[in-house]
């Protein structure tokens, strides 16, 4: 009985990353996985959208209509979000925040189209966290100078420095783990529903897709870009 459950779960429940094909590179075997392919699909979708909107905005009308309206709505709402959070520093970060917002959003909701979301791979979310960490570090050095940076590290007392360093290093880890675990939990839940309840899984998993892919994905996108903006503008304040 037990063995049967384990065996059927191993066979039917499938949410792991699979290798599609491998090639040799400098004596190492490198695998092209489902994550790469799904990310390529997401990027191609975004690039197609970008090229079409670039074409449309070249000959933009005074009164927007149709596709131009959609593009202007997306861009202005992203700009408003960045400006509302970061204040007067916001206009330098509109491009970066807009880019990661669109990328994470499209990655998260790609699960609804049957792809494996690229953000359910820690190798995708950790670089995003590292990028945020780099931006925090650079802006801290630029705005607070080295003296302010060292003063921030030795905040209450000098011997508090190791704890402050650990706190700084925990930022990218917790950011990327939050996004990764949220998207992965949605992927696993959907795989369990389709794998173990496959006999009665008609129509009602659509409601779960709306929650796990659309709602949770959009919330996590918002949270990731919001926290990135908060950390960066926190690094910019000089006292």
């Amino acid at each position: 009985m037990n063995q049967w459950i384990l065996a059927s779960a191993e066979k039917d429940v499938d949410f792991m990353i699979h290798g599609v094909f491998s090639y040799e590179l400098f004596g190492h075997t490198v695998w092209i996985t489902t994550t790469h392919i799904c990310m390529l699909i997401v990027l191609l979708t975004l690039m197609t959208f970008m090229f079409i909107s670039g074409r449309v905005m070249k000959k933009a009308d005074e009164v927007p209509g149709g596709f131009q309206n959609i593009v202007e709505l997306i861009v202005s709402s992203l700009d408003n979000m960045v400006d509302g959070t970061m204040g007067k520093n916001g206009k330098n970060f509109r491009n970066y925040i807009g880019t990661i917002f669109m990328f994470i959003l499209f990655s998260n909701i790609s699960g609804i189209l049957g792809l494996r979301p690229p953000t359910a791979d820690y190798g995708v979310t950790f670089p995003l966290g590292i990028m945020t960490f780099t931006l925090i570090f650079i802006n801290k050095l630029r705005y607070q100078k080295v003296s302010g940076f060292m003063k921030g590290l030795m905040d209450p007392w000098p011997f508090w420095m190791p704890i402050n360093i650990i706190g700084d290093l925990a930022v990218p880890v917790s950011l990327s783990l939050r996004l990764f675990a949220n998207v992965l939990s949605g992927t696993v839940m959907m795989a369990l529903v389709y794998g173990l309840l496959s006999k009665i899984a008609y129509a009602w998993p659509a409601a779960l897709h709306v929650y796990f892919d659309l709602f949770s994905g959009a919330i996590q996108t918002y949270v990731f870009s919001m926290l990135t903006m908060t950390y960066i503008s926190d690094a910019m304040t000089t006292d």
């Binding site: 783990l177 939050r178 949220n182 919330i219 949270v223 926290l227």
Partner: peptide
């Protein structure tokens, strides 16, 4: 929603 998503992290660990 922002606060709840941050609070969720420990459960996700």
């Amino acid at each position: 929603l922002l606060g709840q998503a941050v609070a969720e992290t420990t459960g996700l660990y």
